[in-house]
């Protein structure tokens, strides 16, 4: 019997591949949300495992807030090209110019503005399903989400009225205008993601590894100094050896001091970590229900 045994990563992998193939089988126009971040890097490898030797039966889609780390976009474009995948990028900048997204007075964050940009892209390409790399261990509202997350014609999530998911039977039926978000790595933890990256020997953007970067201390975290985050008069700019644990926008992603230069170092660091991954994301700290509110409005 022991030779017919899967370890936890193999279990998570076969579950995710099954879900990817259900998407290919049940939807007419799916897309895969690929940011270049560690979770979507795993998604791409899972897509390769699900669909090779064929081409990926779906394009890659990214909503570019205009506040991305340049290293992330460089990686995103290169990886998409390596895979021979079609990459569609829609920008918040463009959405604002077209009046699709309207910044509130003084609103600097592009977090909220991603939502109308994504919904417009879904409409433009008539996508009926978007695969995303969200994980339930990231956040409390995510913990309540299904693998197949039904969205009404406004892209909204209704947590009180989710379709029951039983065994591995996913109900992907939609009426026109409705949409599904599918999260194949729902059951993965941050640790699983890094262990998988290590096992599969996957390349990740350089900013996940330790590097030197000028930072300022703000809101209890180290923010990277850049054109969008200039140091304020009283702030001391410090050149630190840091890495990012989770990648959000450059204006809200805290850096952590770290000597980790390999995937193995990162795994050891997470094992000893005392705060969660999202602890370094200012966008989730704004209120206890920040994620819940964004998801209800159509956030992925």
């Amino acid at each position: 019997m022991s030779s017919y045994h899967l370890d936890h990563l193999q279990h998570l992998e076969t579950e995710a591949i099954h879900i990817m193939r259900e998407v290919a089988g049940e939807f007419e126009r799916p897309a895969l949300l690929f940011s270049g971040g560690k979770d979507s890097i795993c998604l791409l490898r899972l897509a390769e495992k699900a669909f090779r030797p064929s081409d990926l039966p779906m394009p890659l889609l990214n909503v570019d807030t205009g506040h991305h780390f340049p290293e992330l976009n460089e990686f995103r474009d290169r990886r998409a090209q390596q895979l021979g995948g079609k990459l569609i990028v829609r920008t918040v900048e463009d959405a604002i110019a077209k009046g699709i997204a309207q910044p509130a007075p003084g609103e600097i964050s592009r977090n909220r503005l991603q939502i109308p940009t994504l919904l417009a892209a879904i409409e433009e390409f008539r996508f009926d399903c978007c695969i995303g790399g969200a994980r339930r261990d990231e956040e409390k509202a995510r913990a309540k989400e299904r693998f197949f997350s039904f969205r009404d014609s406004f892209g909204q999530w209704d947590p009180k009225n989710q379709r029951p998911e039983i065994w591995n039977l996913y109900n992907g039926r939609l009426n026109p205008g409705e949409n599904m978000r599918v999260f194949p790595i729902s059951n993965w933890t941050e640790m699983d993601v890094w262990e998988y990256i290590q096992r599969e020997n996957l390349e990740v953007p350089s900013i996940y590894f330790s590097h030197k970067r000028p930072c300022v201390r703000r809101g209890g975290q180290w923010l990277p100094v850049n054109a969008l985050v200039p140091p304020k008069a009283h702030e001391e700019v410090r050149e630190l050896v840091v890495r990012v644990r989770t990648i959000g926008d450059i204006i809200s992603t805290g850096c952590v001091e770290s000597p980790a230069t390999t995937t193995g170092d990162i795994i050891a660091e997470i094992a000893a970590a005392r705060v969660t991954e999202r602890g370094s994301r200012a966008d989730d700290k704004s209120s206890e229900a920040a994620m819940e509110d964004r998801k209800k409005a159509g956030y992925f």
């Binding site: 261990d137 913990a143 309540k144 729902s186």
Partner: peptide, 19 residues
């Protein structure tokens, strides 16, 4: 009890997954 509605009502309204 992650959702605001749950905290307000002191109940669990849906399946929550923990790891």
């Amino acid at each position: 009890d992650g959702l605001r509605a749950e905290r307000e009502q002191g109940i669990t309204i849906d399946v929550a997954y923990r790891y």
